[in-house]
Computed example of a mutant assay.
Amino acid sequence: MNPETLAEWLKGEGEPAFRAGQILNWIWKKKVASIDGMTNLSAALRAKLAEHFRLHALEHTHTQGSKDTTRKFLFRLHDHRYVESVLIPANPALYGEKSDRRTLCVSSQVGCAYGCKFCASGLAGFTRNLQPSEIAGQVLAAEMLSGERVDNLVFMGMGEPLANLDNLLAAVSIITSDWGLHLGARHLTISTSGLVPQIQKLADHPQQIRLAISLHGATDDVRGQIMPVNKKWGTAELFGALDYWNSKKKQHLTLEYILIDNVNDSLEQARILAGHARRLNAKVNLIPYNTVEGLEWVRPSETRCKAFRDILKNAGVSATLRLEKGHDIDAACGQLRLKQETEEGIIEAPMKQR
C-alpha cells in the first residue's frame, strides 16, 4: 500500500493519517518482521492491522554462491511457488555503471508465457503475475540477506515485466519513493522481449526508467528462431517503438544479445546489429549463452564472441562482452526455481526443446 491508500483506511478506523507513515517506515526502512514489532503503535491498532492485513516477507529457502561472488536467492511465496533473484557484484561492463555498484536482477512473474528459446523461465509455462509487494519484497529480502545496499535494479529475472506492467509500476513506486526503498528511477532497468504496445505505454510514464531489449537476432528470420514474440511484433514494429521511446526518454537504450553458437553469432548478424544500434544510439550488451539443462543450445567460443564484439566496436557502437557472472550457480533465469519445483513435484520435468 502507499501512504494515501493506507491513510484512507486508517481514517475509516478512526486513526490519524500520520500513522500511515509510521507503518510504512517500519516495513520498508526498519524491515520489521511482524506487525507486533511496530512498537510505537498502540496494541489496539496493531490488532486491527493483523486482522485486516498480511505482512508476509518472502521466505528465503536457498542461496547459491558463485566464485565471482554473484549470489542467487530462491524465495518461496505465500502460495508455495518459487521465484529467484540474483545479486550481481560490481562490474564496469554492466550497463556502463561504475565499478562500485551492486545490481539485483528481479523477477516479475512465476514462470513466463513468452517461451524465449534460451531461457529456463518458460520451460514449465506461466503460473501467475507477482504482486507489487512480491516484486519490491525481493529487494528488501536481498538487502537483508546480503547486508548490502542494492544500487541498481534490473527487471530481467523470471517473467516478462511488461506483461505485468500495472503491478510492475506499482512496485517501482514503492522502490523509488522516499517512504519506500528510495532508489532513483535512473538506477532501474526494465528488460522486455519486445511487447510493442507496452513499450510505448512505458515511454509515456514520467519516471526516467531505463529500457533494455532482449533482441538476440538482428533480422526477423534469426530472431524468430529464438524469440516467439517476434511473430507478433517483428523487428520493424519493435524498432518503431524504440524510436518512440527515444523521443520521450533521455537514457540510452540497451540491446541485449545472447550469443548462441551457429544460431545468431554470424559476423553478418553483427554487421546488421551494428546498423540498428548506431541508428538507435543504443548500447549493446553481448552475453555468451548460459547453459540451461533441458535446452540444446551451445555457447560460442570466446574467440567467436570477441570477433562479434569487435565488429560492433569498429562500427562505432558502444558494445560490451559480458563473460557472464554466475555461470557456476545455475544463474540462467528461472533455472534454480525450475529445479526446486520439479523436485517438490509442483511441476513436471520439462521435455527438452529446441
Rank of each mutant, 00 (worst) to 15 (best):
A277Y: 08
T176E: 08
Y257S: 02
A332P: 10
L255P: 03
G334L: 14
L58E: 04
V150D: 03
W9M: 03
L130M: 07
T219E: 06
L130T: 12
G316H: 11
L295P: 02
P300C: 15
T342S: 12
L162D: 15
Q269A: 15
T192Y: 08
K232P: 07
Q198I: 03
I311R: 05
T219M: 13
G96E: 09
A47C: 07
T103I: 08
K11A: 01
K29G: 10
L145Y: 08
K98R: 09
C116I: 04
E15Y: 02
L321K: 01
S193C: 14
L202N: 00
S42G: 13
K339N: 03
E143G: 10
D221Q: 09
D310N: 01
L94R: 13
T303G: 10
Y114K: 10
I175E: 01
A319F: 03
R101C: 04
R101L: 06
H52A: 09
A270S: 10
H182K: 13
A218D: 01
D166C: 15
S177D: 14
D328I: 13
P350V: 02
E344W: 12
I287S: 04
E268N: 12
L153R: 00
S247A: 14
I329T: 05
F118C: 09
E302L: 15
W179S: 12
S99H: 07
Q353N: 12
Q207D: 12
L6K: 00
G180P: 04
R354W: 13
Q269T: 01
M38Q: 00
S193M: 13
K339W: 00
K11N: 01
S177Y: 03
G12T: 04
E343Q: 10
A212K: 08
Y257L: 01
P197A: 01
G294H: 05
M1V: 06
R186W: 14
Y114T: 03
T61Q: 15
E344C: 11
E134P: 07
